[in-house]
């Protein structure tokens, strides 16, 4: 459904020179939205992604400042591991303490941000502190595609395959549709949900390292408020907020659509004050459309069942 919407809207907005910037802008939100989609599919939500991103991005800056010669690949590994730990904290609190994710991740949103502020203080690390090869990750292109965007695409494809074709992936949908039934079927609900949170943390960590590569400064406030964009992207991309349905490809397209619209509005010289209102309308439209489609489908299903009887 949304693929069609995107496809009809996109060509209008995509001007050749803007493509690269557009893709670069979308990359980070796309990666975060994939992680968010995994969590939302299990009927949870992760509001702490913005704070995780901030913390890991600052960590990345610190790594380069303290160990100037550190291999870039190692930074990626450390960043993702750091993200995994933060995600695991969320996941453990949610699964072991059996507390709603909304509350837990709202709490860790505050806490991670507080830790980031305490750690960073007024310190910021700038692009100049990082090796050129690292920064060029987000500027070099292959066939017109920025490197980090290719990385994001690879992540989308990888996660999509896992979700669609592996046992663990299918389990996430089952858990999201009906946790009690999933447990009855012998699905390891706790482990899977924990896994989804860790995956979201890892992806937020990855996004954070890319953020450090793409943007100039990383500090105490990096990534503030990003969580709403990310949840919005997933929802616009057709991931049902009550779990059980949606795809990472959809979430990625949702993220792309949102960033495209923001960029397009600027490029079309639409008053910037309208941008946020339009994003709001879009979110509501997306969930309304999904709702109508599912109602329609349910009615058809009922009709055909009635006929079969």
């Amino acid at each position: 459904m949304l693929v069609v919407v995107t496809a009809t809207i996109n060509p209008l907005f995509l001007t050749p020179q803007g493509v690269k910037d557009l893709l670069l802008n979308a990359t980070i939100v796309v990666i975060l939205a994939i992680g968010q989609a995994l969590v939302i599919i299990t009927r949870n939500v992760d509001l702490s992604v913005g704070s995780i991103l901030g913390l890991v991005a600052f960590g990345t800056g610190t790594l380069f400042a303290v160990y100037p010669g550190i291999p870039i690949i190692l930074v990626f590994v450390i960043g993702m591991a750091f993200g995994a730990v933060l995600g695991a904290v969320n996941g453990l609190l949610v699964t072991i303490a059996k507390v709603p994710a909304l509350v837990i991740t709202l709490g860790t949103l505050y806490i991670y941000r507080g830790v980031n502020n305490a750690w960073a203080g007024g310190t910021q690390y700038f692009a100049g502190d990082r090796p050129r090869a690292f920064s060029s990750l987000s500027t070099d292109t292959i066939f017109g595609f920025p490197l980090i965007t290719l990385l994001a695409i690879a992540v989308v494809v990888g996660v999509a395959i896992v979700l669609a074709y592996t046992r663990a992936g299918r389990d996430l949908y089952a858990i999201g549709s009906d946790p009690a039934a999933a447990r009855l079927f012998g699905i390891p609900v706790t482990r899977r949900v924990l896994g989804a949170f860790v995956a979201s943390g890892v992806l937020a960590g990855l996004a954070a390292v890319l953020y450090a590569s793409r943007f100039n400064a990383v500090g105490a406030t990096t990534g503030t408020g990003l969580e709403l964009d990310v949840v919005a992207a997933a929802v616009v991309g057709g991931v049902a907020i009550f779990g059980g349905s949606g795809t990472v490809v959809g979430a990625a397209i949702g993220a792309l659509l949102l960033t495209t619209i923001t960029s397009a509005l600027t490029a079309l010289r639409v008053d910037k004050f309208w941008q946020q209102a339009i994003v709001g309308v879009l979110i509501i439209a997306a969930i309304s459309v999904d709702r109508l489609v599912s109602l329609n489908r349910a009615r058809k299903l009922r009709v055909s069942e009635a006929r079969n009887v």
């Binding site: 803007g18 910037d21 802008n25 400064a217 923001t262 960029s263 600027t266 079309l268 010289r269 910037k272």
Partner: peptide, 21 residues
Amino acid sequence: KVYGDDDDAKSFQEAQGLLSA
């Protein structure tokens, strides 16, 4: 006249928006 809100990422994107517009 555009506003980056003294936020690094936002300013970055506003700069980019200016040059494309």
